[in-house]
């Protein structure tokens, strides 16, 4: 069983990301169950997508402290979702900041995240945006998590799903982002990226 939580701001595309991940797991013959935030929160509020892959899944919701992997498309939402992660779970986040009306300090938020999440990879959204366009940020995050073995499918499986889902241009952009995510995961400045293993592994 792999429990994946996707956190972001309404409008960022968490629903599409969860559909890509679910499709890849389904193509592998796994059962998938999950839940989306649809409605008012989609207008720029905090949104969560739950994706549960495996066998004999009952609840569509992941409970706090039980997610194997958390993908976060925004820095503050990464912190908000961190409580869902297992102690040895992997979080792939990005440094994209979408300020809520009350505002926050990105450096402090990053420090908070680094202090509370042992297995944390924060991708630079600016670099991804420059290389593939910001709309492909989510796919790069999926690619990085995939490269870290977070999912019950490979990057190649995800490429097939991307080809099915997008037109030629979209497919090219998302494939590039997926592979960029893979590269960034390999070159990550976190402990795993440097080849160190986490103590609990």
């Amino acid at each position: 069983m792999t429990d994946c939580l996707i956190a972001g701001v309404g409008g960022q595309g968490t629903v599409l990301a969860s559909r890509l991940i679910s499709s890849a797991a389904l193509a592998r013959g796994l059962d998938v169950r999950g839940a989306e935030t649809i409605g008012m929160a989609q207008r720029g509020g905090s949104v969560l997508s739950h994706v549960r892959m495996g066998r004999d899944i009952k609840s569509p919701l992941i409970s706090p402290g039980r997610a194997d992997v958390v993908l976060a498309f925004e820095l503050c939402e990464a912190a908000r979702a961190s409580g869902y992660l297992k102690r040895d779970g992997l979080m792939v986040a990005c440094d994209r900041v979408i300020q809520p009306a009350s505002g926050y300090d990105p450096d402090a938020m990053r420090a908070l995240l680094e202090a509370s999440v042992p297995r944390l990879l924060i991708l630079k959204s600016g670099a991804i945006g420059a290389a593939c366009g910001i709309r492909a940020l989510n796919t790069a995050i999926i690619g990085a998590a995939c490269a870290r073995g977070a999912f019950p499918f490979s990057i190649g499986d995800m490429e097939k799903i991307i080809d099915e889902r997008f037109d030629a241009d979209g497919s090219r952009m998302n494939r590039a982002a997926l592979r960029l995510g893979e590269t960034l995961a390999a070159a990550g400045e976190d402990r795993e990226g440097r080849g160190e293993r986490h103590g609990d592994d």
Binding site: G10, M40, R43, G45, S46, C76, A79, A101
Partner: peptide, 8 residues
């Protein structure tokens, strides 16, 4: 954490 209510 700062709340993020939905917005226009």
């Amino acid at each position: 954490l700062p709340v993020r209510p939905p917005v226009l």
